[in-house]
Design a protein around this nucleic acid. Structure first.
Lengths: 135, 135
DNA sequence: CTGTATCCTTAGGGATACTG
DNA sequence: CAGTATCCCTAAGGATACAG
């Protein structure tokens, strides 16, 4: 409803991303959708970091408002709601992979499979090919 | 002094990065250091987003504590302090570039040069080569 | 110029009860 | 199951004065 596009602190692309993703919870929801196969409110609640229902609710609403996720209701199963990444949300994949690689390199406690780093270069090549195609 | 390493909410690499970078200001300081050539307290203060002195002070301390930036004092010039990225901080470059690319793609108001996206694929290739070398 | 200190306000977040 | 609604507390943040 209210759509003043100039609520931002600046036009910097880093700041733009921060306005949407710059908090302690949003990226964890993206992670759950992107890598953990989670799609429902209840599944998000069960993640290790223990988000509370009101915060989760607010983050999901904001993500939907920003067009990163979509919402759908299954009519067959009783009132089951499914969340999914939009293409805009899926476009966060390279960011998520880079973050994972950075953390794996600099945090010994991080439980990232060794195989990830090996496969990462290959993944990057795929991403480049993908981006080159749509350009 | 206090170094309990288990203050984290989880061992997830995404969460690890969030613990350090997951707020509205930290990445902007990284940006200023990485892309804007800023090195001093006063220069950070002048950025568009208008961080206040106490917050900037706290973020710089946290970044130094986490080993992302270093601090040095010039003895010739009177009490001028210079901040710089450590190698751990510089390793954030791929993340910063991906964030910039994502924002440029999804935010029309973002003032990212068109040339950036063209050069981005080339940059990615350089990064891959770099990472392959150290593996 | 580089911060600290202080005051005050707001936003974020935990816990939990409750509703369609 | 998927949220809303409350209560309450703490952290984050803005403004600004001031100190080394």
């Amino acid at each position: 409803m209210k759509k003043e596009s100039t609520n931002w602190r600046s036009n910097c692309p880093i700041n733009f991303a921060l306005e949407t993703l710059g908090d302690k919870w949003t990226l964890l929801i993206i992670r759950d959708l992107m890598f953990k196969g989670k799609t429902s409110f209840g599944e998000f609640l069960q993640s290790q970091e223990k988000i509370s229902t009101n915060i989760l609710s607010a983050r999901l609403a904001k993500l939907e408002e920003h067009g990163l996720i979509g919402k759908s209701v299954a009519i067959d199963k009783r009132s089951k709601v499914f969340y999914s990444l939009t293409s805009k949300g899926k476009d966060l994949l390279p960011i998520m992979l880079e973050i994972t690689a950075w953390s794996a390199k600099h945090d010994s406690a991080t439980n990232t499979p060794k195989s990830f780093l090996k496969q990462f270069a290959a993944s990057k090549k795929d991403m480049i090919a993908m981006m080159s195609n749509e350009q």
